[in-house]
Amino acid sequence: MITNQKISLSNKLSQVEGIIVSDMGGEKVMLSIAKGKYFNLGEMGGEIWDLMKEAIEVKQIISVLESIYQVDQEECEEQVLTFLSQLFDQELIKIND
């Protein structure tokens, strides 16, 4: 069941500029000096992050991931929406509707 309503499948999302991003052993890590926080998106999160270089609809992200990974649609939607909401809460991504 999808409980998080902050980010929806029709939202267009993109990365927020000015964040220090690096690849460490296949995992995407970020540093926000302003917030004093270090973020690790992991391997899967890094792949989702890369898809948001340009504004992209959430349902497109889901579609790309479903074509690459063995996962059913509902599980993918739920987990990706939760993850994207966390990124949004931390102001790492923005909505471009």
Binding site: G36, K37, F39, L41, Y69, F83, Q86, L87
Partner: peptide
Amino acid sequence: MKKQWKSPMLEILDI
């Protein structure tokens, strides 16, 4: 052949 799915997670460290 499709890759194995792993749930995406965000790890946050307050520095």
